[in-house]
Amino acid sequence: MPEERISRWYFGGISSSAAACLTHPLDLIKVHLQTQQEVRARMIGMTVNVVRREGVLALYSGLSASVCRQMTYSMTRFAIYETVRDKMYRENKSLMPFYQKVLLGAFGGFAGGFVGTPADLVNVRMQNDVKLPAELRRNYVHALDGLLRVWREEGLRKLFSGATLASTRGALVSVGQLSCYDQSKQLVLATGYLPDNILTHFLASVIAGGCATILCQPLDVVKTRLMNSTQEYRGVLHCLTDTARLGPKAFYKGLVPAGIRLVPHTVFTFLFLEQLRQRFGVVVVN
């Protein structure tokens, strides 16, 4: 009987955390760019400013919170997506159609976005601390310290501030990453030119990273405009309609920097995930 290995439910969290350790400086610079009140520095300029002011290690500020976020947000969405997908495959003896992958990816991403909101909040604060004056810094020791202090000082509700946007973004990113990766890998294997190896995983993950960037960039733009605003927007809908007046291109400002951050993270995540699956996955008989 032919055998294959499938991922364990927690592999997604481990692989995403490993990818986050490699791409954390890019994520930190993105947060700095999004939270500056006016456009004073671009990507390279902001990186130079951080290193010059605080040193190279400052690029890894908030790493514990970033890993904590991946172990909540990514572990949840991967666990939901891969568990349901593999169960349906064993029951139906056929691959899921793409529309079902999209729906499952959106559901898993929405749930993961909600679960990961507290860690995301602490992650943004810890990364942003570097550029604040010393007297205004929160100085969280690590992610757990940040979570406990927000809970004690600002209440449990504050931990889930922005959960709607985080969940919606999680759904879009997961459709781009999980659903598009599965479909891309399936199409690459179907050509017969490449086996299930690291090159196939790389090609499929690059496509998935590009899809995820394009899908979530409009929401990122709206989130950034809301963060940069000085109370000129009444809410998300007002910001959305105001941005739409500038034309479709307005929703894709900063697409290249966003891709520079998200595509490598997606590639590393799936390369690590596939290696974990092939070496330590659960053996099932087809």
Rank of each mutant, 00 (worst) to 15 (best):
Q231L: 13
L187Q: 14
Q278H: 13
P264T: 04
T47H: 06
D120S: 14
T269K: 15
K158F: 08
L172Q: 04
R77I: 12
A143H: 05
V282D: 09
R85I: 06
S184I: 04
G176L: 04
L159P: 01
L219F: 14
V150F: 04
Y10Q: 03
E91Q: 10
G281P: 02
S229K: 05
V188H: 08
V285I: 08
F78P: 01
L194C: 13
A18W: 07
L22Q: 13
R77F: 15
L156M: 14
A208L: 02
D27M: 14
R85W: 02
V48F: 11
H265V: 10
L187D: 12
R152D: 08
F160Y: 15
T269A: 15
S161P: 09
D86L: 08
R277G: 05
V221F: 02
E3P: 02
N49Q: 14
E82V: 01
Y81F: 14
I29W: 03
V84A: 03
V222S: 01
T83H: 05
S61K: 03
S74I: 04
S64L: 13
L147R: 02
G109F: 06
T35N: 15
H142M: 05
L26T: 06
Q278D: 13
L63Y: 05
R53D: 15
I6Q: 07
A166L: 12
D145T: 04
L262P: 00
T213H: 01
N139R: 15
G192N: 06
G113R: 01
T83K: 07
S16D: 09
G254D: 04
R137V: 06
P118Q: 08
S94H: 08
P2L: 11
A143M: 07
R5G: 05
A190T: 10
S179D: 03
T243L: 15
K223I: 13
K30N: 11
H32F: 06
G146W: 00
T241I: 11
V102S: 03
P133H: 11
L226R: 06
P195W: 05
P25Q: 12
P257Q: 09
G13Q: 03
T117H: 03
V122K: 01
T72K: 02
V285N: 12
Y181H: 10
G209E: 01
